[in-house]
Nucleic acid binder design. Structure first.
Lengths: 347, 347
DNA sequence: CTGAAAGCGCTTACAG
DNA sequence: CTGAAAGCGCTTACAG
């Protein structure tokens, strides 16, 4: 049933009639190619009657400028390179959507690279995209700060989920929300926590861990870091052994994917959540509101962040100053995976 | 904290030193630009000693070909345009990943457009991308068959989740799986079903509905179509009123997102799932295995499908025959949202 | 095997 | 306001 039928056996690459060029329009409109070009790309720089004729001809021939030819001259391709570690992760999908909106606003287009969490592929993607785009938006990049700065000598660069000195940086500030989360656990009676870490190369992971550490210290709670781990559901599930071994009553996970994995595994080990183990995630992804129990997490408008980041990158490309990043904070969403610890675990 | 610091106030668009061109290499290697070009793009067409010198010079200057200039001449951009209705939907995210893999294999890159379920934006995206890509991969397109065929006169086109005469078409065949699902419901004792429809413009939605209709008829069960609806969780939830009003004991939803919405709403209405209402989804997306109850659904390797589709498109671009699409079928995954109807509802 | 030359489609000073 | 001309960086017949 689902067979691929090639349109016609020997069809070559660019099928159909060749597109009209400015020369064709010039002929039809009875003007020179220069005038066509000027009229079309610098409106207002030509006689209105001439402009009318040119536009009519363009319309008639269904003219569409050859992006490459234009790019060759202007150095602009109209494309933004977007590099994400995992397009399959709802958080990154939202960021892509936000960036796409911003790009569309400026008539720009998105060149997407999904590195599938591989540092090597990220390096490869960034160098491959380099010449094909006007700027690069690096999301949760694993590249080192120096490498990023080097990149920014070759093209415009902005980063998301990271703070790099000298580069427009956009990230959700986790400090207030995570501090609230630790406070929330404290009030529930927890005194010993675990932080189930994400990738060691993730700047954001370090920041979240440091924040939890500091907040726990403030409250005189104990906290241990468990990891690093891949930021996945499977890795979260695998971490349950170490969480149990640590003897803590609550765990904060690097992200919701890991919290969901932790929850899966807790059930498999007959641990009651939140009674035996309270769980806090991060991101408020699709699904975190219908696990059972539902997951207490930190929410943030990541789509809007992707949008701001892309707008800023475009400003940079246009030679303007990048606008200051809005102060985007994660906020605590209390659901059912956090509760009082069983008495035996309080200490 | 999260402030954007522009690298340096007045920095212009293409920062840093200009990239090396073949002329620079020619100078360093002491040969003509033609030779450089030939050596670099047609390996084996030049003296091995010359080739060595050219390569060394290229390496030394960190040469990277200007994609645009090359494209201008060859007519190839090395980009595949990928148009999806909703990047935020896990199904499409997987397809994007698959396509990305296939593209990377051929050194091609993905130009992504997310139409956010808008037909207008799809038209706009396809015409904007047209000149910037070597081919277009249309996923769950709402375009009419004629429009798609017209597009395919201008560039290479393949479609996913759709079957268009004369165009390489890739989709998950739902017939066997859905027939199994209806049989499964029959065995459980259900005799009256509802199909909660997706978008009216979705070819795949029609196919799924027709399949359910046919299967129900075969079994002498009754079935009603409820919709059309947007393919979203919210729309699924909103459809619960009509499902209840229809007095059926089981509902098959166009996709998992809608099934999850239906489940949310069923709980809100104090309906027992599966006792009062059995639910079947489609896609087996992330989350459908941890709702409570977990959702019985149809699973299929959509990532692999995206990969095959993109490979086929690339073959077409290379002027080869598109390979036949593999026969990819959805298969029934029985979980906890389907069960025996309460006796009062059996009829 | 190699080089000089033309050309891909557009833009942009430069004259007029 | 408009046109002739040069040039963006590469590729590819065409001679040699």
């Amino acid at each position: 049933v689902s067979e691929a039928k090639a349109p016609s056996a020997g069809r070559r690459m660019q099928p159909g009639k060749p597109r009209a060029t400015i020369y064709d329009i010039a002929k039809v409109a009875g003007v020179s190619p220069s005038t066509v070009s000027r009229t079309l790309s610098n409106p207002g720089r030509s006689n209105s009657e001439t402009a009318r004729k040119v536009r009519a001809a363009a319309e008639q021939l269904d003219y569409r400028a050859n992006v490459m030819a234009r790019a060759l001259h202007t150095g602009r391709t109209g494309a933004i390179g977007l590099i994400v570690p995992d397009i399959t992760n709802p958080v990154f999908a939202s960021i892509v959507r936000g960036a796409g909106r911003a790009a569309a606003t400026h008539g720009a287009t998105l060149l997407l690279a999904d590195t599938e969490e591989s540092g090597d592929r990220e390096v490869e993607a960034s160098s491959r995209l380099l010449r094909a785009v006007d700027g690069l938006l690096l999301v949760s990049t694993r590249l080192e700060a120096d490498v990023i700065r080097e990149l920014s000598e070759r093209t415009c660069v902005a980063v998301v989920n990271r703070d790099v000195e000298g580069i427009p940086s956009f990230f959700v500030n986790p400090v207030a929300g995570l501090t609230d989360a630790v406070g929330h656990l404290y009030e529930l009676g927890h005194r010993s926590l675990a932080y189930v870490s994400g990738p060691s190369t993730s700047w954001m992971n370090r920041l979240r861990w440091e924040t939890c550490l500091e907040a726990a210290l403030q409250r005189e709670m104990t906290i241990v870091e468990i990891g690093p781990n891949p930021p996945t559901r499977a890795a979260g599930a695998a971490a349950i052994r170490r969480v149990r071994a640590a003897g803590v009553s609550a765990a904060l996970a690097f992200n919701d994917l890991m919290a969901i994995g932790l929850l899966d595994a807790a059930k498999a080990h007959n641990l009651l959540v939140p009674g035996d183990l309270s769980l806090v995630g991060f991101d408020d992804i699709f699904g975190s509101d219908f696990t059972s129990p539902t997951i207490t997490t930190l929410a943030a408008p990541v789509g809007r962040m992707g949008e701001s980041a892309c707008h800023a990158l475009i400003a940079l490309i246009e030679g303007e100053r990048a606008p200051a990043a809005p102060d985007i904070r994660a906020s605590l969403v209390i659901r059912d995976s956090t509760g009082n610890p069983r008495r035996s675990q309080q200490r």
